[in-house]
Amino acid sequence: MIHVLKAGTIKNYYTTERYLQKFLWKKKRVKDIFLKQLNFRFITDFEHYLRTYKNSKKQLMLSNNGVMKHLERFKKMINLAIKLEWMNKNLFSQFQLKYDKYDKAYLNERELELLETTEFTSERLQKIKDCFVFSCYTGLSYIDVKELTENNIVKGLDNTNWIYTKREKTDEPVKAPILPKAWTILEKYKAKEELDIKTNLLPISSNKKTNAYLKEIIKDCGIHKNISFHVARHTFATTVMLSNVNHNRAKRLK
């Protein structure tokens, strides 16, 4: 079976390639290098270059985890070269990728309710807020929300509406019940004439604009957290699912 990298993943590899090209030119004044010239020192020098790389405004560009991501992609290319018998030695055998651990951000029940009940006069902000809330109640990622169509909505055996799709990132099947609050948002935009429901069900913007608008939205709601669209998935897994479990448990105890 042939595995094809997703567009977003390929884009990330191109970014790593550009950093490698800049590193080669700055440190060695060459545009390319033979695989046999690579060694452990090359990796540590490249790591140092990434950690100290600054943009035109003299600002550091990468966090520790950002540096590790680029080295991880480079490591995968080295491993591929070894499998193809282009190289004999694994340069990363003595190099350990060390990621910083951090608590995943999410909205708690109070914050989610505050977000839901805040209405925006700005149409662009209201649309992104609705898409974010939809993700909070379905657990879908940005790209899965963006590519959601009517074909992904089916009736389950329990006669309720479900989302059947595949995760863009992993190609894994996703089956999720559409909770009432998520269904209300779908119905809202299905009724709008300007939305082509054959190709998309929700009016989400580009990933970059969506995250920029979310910062405005969260600030206007008085929520003091650093939020990206990915936070919706964590909110679904922690706040929404936990709330439903507790609600069902309380019903059984009555």
Rank of each mutant, 00 (worst) to 15 (best):
Asn39His: 10
Val154Gln: 10
Gly8Pro: 00
Ile33Cys: 11
Met87Ala: 05
Lys225Arg: 06
Met77Cys: 12
Ser135Thr: 02
Thr44Leu: 11
Val145Cys: 11
Asn211Lys: 08
Ser135Gln: 07
Lys209Ser: 14
Leu107Gly: 06
Tyr19Gly: 04
Ala212Glu: 12
Gly156Ile: 11
Lys155Ser: 13
Ala232Glu: 07
Leu24Ala: 09
Lys31Tyr: 10
Leu114Arg: 12
Lys57Tyr: 15
Asn161Tyr: 13
Lys175Arg: 12
Lys6His: 03
Leu179Gln: 05
Lys54Trp: 10
Arg41Cys: 11
Ala105Gly: 08
Asn200Ser: 06
Leu201Met: 12
Trp162Met: 08
Ala176His: 01
Tyr102Cys: 11
Asn207Arg: 10
Phe229His: 07
Phe46Met: 09
Ile43Leu: 14
Asp158Tyr: 06
Met1Ala: 10
Asp32Ala: 09
Leu71Ile: 02
Lys58Arg: 14
Glu187Met: 05
Thr199Leu: 00
Gly8Trp: 00
Thr118Arg: 13
Asp103Gln: 15
Leu60Asn: 14
Leu195Met: 09
Ser122Ala: 09
Lys98Tyr: 03
Ser206Glu: 12
Lys251Cys: 11
Lys26Met: 15
Phe46Cys: 14
Cys136Thr: 06
Glu47Met: 12
Ser56His: 14
Asp45Val: 07
Lys76Val: 11
Lys155Val: 09
Ala237Gln: 07
Lys192Gly: 02
Thr16Cys: 06
Glu172Gln: 14
Ile197Val: 13
Lys31Asp: 15
Val67His: 08
Asn39Tyr: 10
Glu168Cys: 01
Lys188Gln: 13
Val174Pro: 06
Thr15Asn: 08
Arg124Asp: 10
Arg29Phe: 13
Trp25Tyr: 15
Leu50Lys: 08
Leu84Ile: 00
Asp45Gln: 14
Leu114Ser: 05
Leu202Trp: 03
Thr199Tyr: 10
Leu140His: 01
Glu123Tyr: 01
Glu72Met: 14
Val4Asp: 09
Trp25Pro: 00
Asn159Pro: 00
Ser141Arg: 05
Glu172Cys: 05
Lys69Phe: 12
His230Leu: 02
Ser93Met: 08
Asp220Ser: 00
Glu113Ile: 00
Tyr102Val: 05
Gln21Thr: 03
Asp144Gly: 04
Asp45Ile: 02
Lys181Tyr: 11
Thr165Cys: 12
Asn12Lys: 01
Leu214Met: 05
Lys208Ser: 12
Lys129Leu: 08
Ile10Asn: 04
Val133Asp: 09
Met87Thr: 00
Leu71Asn: 05
Arg18Thr: 09
Ile197Ala: 06
Lys254Leu: 15
Leu186Gln: 01
Ile204Trp: 04
Tyr106Pro: 01
Tyr49Cys: 13
Asn88Cys: 03
Ile153Gln: 05
Lys127Leu: 07
Ala182Val: 01
Trp25Arg: 09
Ile185Arg: 04
Met68Gly: 09
Asp100Met: 08
Asp196Leu: 07
Arg252Cys: 13
Lys54Ile: 04
Glu193Ala: 10
Leu24Ile: 09
Asn65Val: 07
Leu38Asn: 03
Glu193Tyr: 04
Met77Ala: 13
Lys146Tyr: 02
Thr117Glu: 11
Ile143Cys: 01
Val133Leu: 14
Thr238Leu: 05
Arg18Lys: 13
Asp100Val: 00
Ser228His: 11
His247Met: 10
Val30Leu: 13
Ile33Arg: 12
Thr52Glu: 15
His48Tyr: 13
Ile163Pro: 05
Lys254Tyr: 10
Val67Lys: 09
Trp25Phe: 13
